[in-house]
């Protein structure tokens, strides 16, 4: 049936909420091929119509015309589905940029279409340049601050990190009392967790 493959593709991004799945080349290419097929059909029908009406007039009651419309609509539908698929994934990548910072982890990169990698890079550059111009980092402080200080537990051996005006040695499992704004980046990168014991 026309448009079914594309619908499957869209369902894939709708299903799971936050995760980025591996880019589905298989379905994606199938939909592209379908579009080309539809386009072939439209062209053939139109040409046939031209031949049959020697005087060059195509009447709307022409049976061939209806066939062409269906193929045309299928192309539009498939196009919209493909764009929706890309757009949803792009949105998720944008969110990752906010959470994890400018550099995407390697395992995420492996799931992406080459153009998506390019997109994240350029998006990140545009965002960074905006924040630099205003001299304000917008990716911290996502939740309203309750207390300027929080307790954090270190999840990995990080080594010496400059927190505030002094350098602190972050050893795995050690607990520190730090400024929230300074810890937030490290928390979103999964290096620290808020300690609420």
């Amino acid at each position: 049936m026309f448009g079914r493959t594309a619908a499957q593709l869209v369902r894939e991004v709708n299903n799971d909420d936050q995760h980025i799945r591996r880019f589905n080349y298989d379905l994606f290419d199938k939909v592209i091929a379908e579009i080309q097929e539809h386009f072939q059909q439209v062209t053939t029908i139109m040409e046939k119509g031209q031949e049959e009406n020697e005087d060059g007039q195509i009447t709307s009651v022409d049976e061939n015309y209806n066939g062409a419309v269906i193929h045309h609509q299928s192309i539009l539908r498939n196009k919209r589905c493909l764009l929706a698929y890309m757009y949803h994934r792009a949105n998720r990548l944008q969110r990752l940029r906010w959470q994890l910072g400018a550099v995407l982890p390697e395992d995420v990169k492996g799931l992406l279409h080459p153009s998506e990698k390019e997109f994240v890079k350029s998006y990140s550059e545009a965002l960074s340049s905006y924040m630099t111009k205003l001299d304000i980092d917008l990716t911290v402080d996502i939740t309203p601050p309750k207390d300027p200080y929080i307790q954090v537990r270190v999840l990995d051996n990080i080594g010496e990190v400059l927190l505030g005006d002094q350098s602190t040695s972050l050893v795995r499992n050690s607990i520190h009392f730090v400024k929230r704004s300074e810890a937030e980046t490290l928390i979103s990168q999964g290096l620290l967790e808020e300690f609420t014991g």
Binding site: I32, L82, A90, P114, F119, S122, A126
Partner: peptide
């Protein structure tokens, strides 16, 4: 002004992405 700059960059980035991945593979009319 900064937001305007960001917005135009964003549109460029997004359309490049869409053209490279999907739109460039379609026929001229689409």
């Amino acid at each position: 002004p900064q937001e305007q700059e960001y917005a135009s960059k964003f549109v460029d980035v997004l359309s490049k992405h869409m053209h490279d991945s999907v739109l460039g593979k379609l026929e001229k009319a689409y």
